[in-house]
């Protein structure tokens, strides 16, 4: 073996050693995040269930004259159930992606409808924190796009939920949508505390929470952004997060043509091989 070859091999070994070390570290971190996940999830599920059970119980005991009191309680039940539904959607999506079972289900979707149904789920928190949520979507003008409605909806649920979670009271969140050529661009920006450089590097990892010390305040399973990233990939899209004053997320998704075949047989030029 020549000196050059030896040098090359030695370089390769060093590189491999580095990869193995990195993997070891990440595996260890992953295990510890996994155990955090169990405790996060217990809070995320027990608390809403307790509220739902107690509110529903009170409603059943209301007398006819007090029935109007059921409305605010029903709102709380709705809010808590919507939170549970959101967490379950994330967990099931993560499980399905990890099992390799997720695939796009393409249809013509009305972006306004998806956006409205997402915002409706967080209305309670938006009112509670007195946030202003503004959008360029107009109720008179429908924005149509061909994509996977369920996946886009879960992506938006996660991104808007994060913006609400990390926005201080009385601030503004902007969600703008535009279609340029065959791309849907979604821009979500908030006036929150922003994201540090260190956190930015690990933000799409599962079970990561940007600030472990404020877990009890902000809640969440730690799965959200890893699910967003994986779903965006399935839709062939791209996501960019920038954070200076507040956080801005730019999501770009290409339109998927329903009729297009995945492959055109006529263009194959090489001989067929059979195995």
């Amino acid at each position: 073996m020549s000196k050059d070859e030896l040098n090359k091999k030695s370089k390769q070994i060093t590189e491999l050693q580095k990869i193995i070390n990195d993997l070891n570290n990440k595996l260890r971190d992953s295990e510890s995040f996994k155990s955090n996940f169990i405790s996060n999830i217990m809070n995320e599920f027990y608390n809403p269930f307790t509220s739902i059970l107690s509110m529903a119980d009170i409603i059943t005991t209301l007398s006819d004259t007090n029935l109007h009191k059921a409305i605010p309680m029903a709102k709380i039940i709705y809010r808590e159930a919507a939170q549970l539904d959101f967490h379950l959607q994330n967990i099931f999506a993560a499980a399905s992606i990890e099992a390799g079972l997720e695939e796009p289900e393409i249809s013509r979707v009305v972006i306004n409808k998806i956006y409205n149904s997402v915002v409706e789920k967080f209305q309670f928190d938006i009112n509670n924190k007195q946030l202003v949520l503004s959008t360029n979507l107009s109720s008179n003008d429908e924005l149509n796009f061909t994509t996977d409605a369920k996946k886009l909806s879960l992506i938006l649920l996660n991104l808007i939920s994060n913006s609400i979670k990390y926005s201080p009271d009385n601030t503004k969140i902007t969600c703008n949508f535009e279609i340029i050529e065959d791309y849907l661009n979604i821009n979500i920006s908030d006036e929150g505390s922003g994201i540090s450089k260190e956190i930015m590097e690990i933000i799409f990892n599962r079970f990561n929470r940007t600030n472990q010390t404020i877990n009890s305040v902000t809640g969440g399973t730690g799965l959200g952004l890893s699910v967003v990233n994986a779903l965006t990939e399935i839709l062939n899209g791209n996501i960019k997060i920038s954070s200076e004053k507040g956080t801005t997320i730019l999501l770009t998704i290409p339109e998927i043509n329903i009729d297009s075949d995945n492959f055109d047989d006529d263009t194959i030029i090489f001989d067929e091989e059979l195995f």
Partner: peptide, 19 residues
């Protein structure tokens, strides 16, 4: 290899083959 980033999906050889 899955390097610990994102979800452990069958996008990565070690996971896809084992699964």
């Amino acid at each position: 290899h899955w390097n610990g980033t994102g979800l452990a999906s069958p996008k990565f050889g070690n996971i896809a083959i084992e699964k």
